[in-house]
C-alpha cells in the first residue's frame, strides 16, 4: 500500500508534492479537498474559478501535466507529484518558451474581446492551451466542439474561437 491515510477525522492530512506554475510545493492536504479548493482556498490562487463544482461548466479548468482537466472533480491528494498550471502560470509558461509578456492566448483574448465578465476566462484560457497541446482540433468547427466544455454565459464564443484560431495560425507561421 503506497498510502493509507488514517481515519476520516478532521485532522487527517496527507503530505503531497505539487509543482504549481513551476514552483515545487510540499503541501498537507485533507483527502476530501479538491484540487480546485486547494488552489482557491488554501493557496490563494483564486484565478481558477468555481462555476458549478460539478464538471459542467469548465471554469475550473487547469493543466495537469499539460493536460486540461476540471479541477473541481479532482482530489488534490490524487494529483501527488503532478505539475499544475493555472491561469496565473500561463505567462510564466510562455516565458519559459522565450515569450516575454503574456501568453499569446492571453494577448489574443484581450485583442478579440473573448470575454466579458471574465469569470469563465481562466478556464477558457487553460482549455485553449490544452486544446493546442492536444493538437486534434484544426478547423473552426473542431475548435468549437473541443471548447464546448467551457461555458461562457456572456456568450463570447465566437470571439473565443477567433482568439484561438489567431494563436494557432501564429504558431503555424
Amino acid at each position: 500500500m503506497l498510502i493509507e491515510s488514517g481515519s476520516p477525522g478532521a485532522d487527517a492530512r496527507i503530505g503531497i508534492t505539487l509543482t504549481i506554475n513551476g514552483e515545487k510545493r510540499e503541501i498537507d492536504v485533507a483527502p476530501w479537498t479538491t484540487l480546485l479548493d486547494l488552489l482557491r482556498e488554501n493557496l490563494d490562487l483564486t484565478g481558477t474559478k468555481k462555476g458549478c463544482d460539478h464538471g459542467q461548466c469548465g471554469a475550473c479548468t487547469v493543466l495537469v501535466n499539460g493536460t486540461r482537466i476540471n479541477s473541481c472533480l479532482a482530489l488534490a491528494v490524487m494529483k501527488d507529484g503532478a505539475e499544475i498550471t493555472t491561469v496565473e502560470g500561463l505567462a510564466g509558461l510562455a516565458q519559459s518558451q522565450g515569450v516575454n509578456t503574456l501568453h499569446p492566448i492571453q494577448e489574443a483574448f484581450v485583442e478579440h474581446d473573448a470575454f466579458q465578465c471574465g469569470y469563465c476566462t481562466p478556464g477558457q484560457l487553460c482549455s485553449s492551451v490544452g486544446l493546442m497541446n492536444e493538437g486534434h482540433a484544426k478547423t473552426r468547427e473542431e475548435i468549437r466542439e473541443a471548447m464546448s466544455g467551457n461555458i461562457c454565459r456572456c456568450g463570447a464564443y465566437t470571439n473565443i474561437v477567433d482568439a484561438i484560431e489567431d494563436v494557432m495560425q501564429g504558431a503555424a507561421r
Partner: peptide
C-alpha cells in the same frame, strides 16, 4: 478599444466577491 480590465481578467488577478481574503 480593448478592455482596460482585460489584463487583470486574463491573468487571474481580477478578484470576485468570494475571493477576497
Amino acid at each position: 478599444m480593448s478592455r482596460v480590465d482585460g489584463p487583470a481578467k486574463v491573468t487571474g488577478l481580477a478578484k470576485y466577491a468570494g475571493e477576497f481574503a
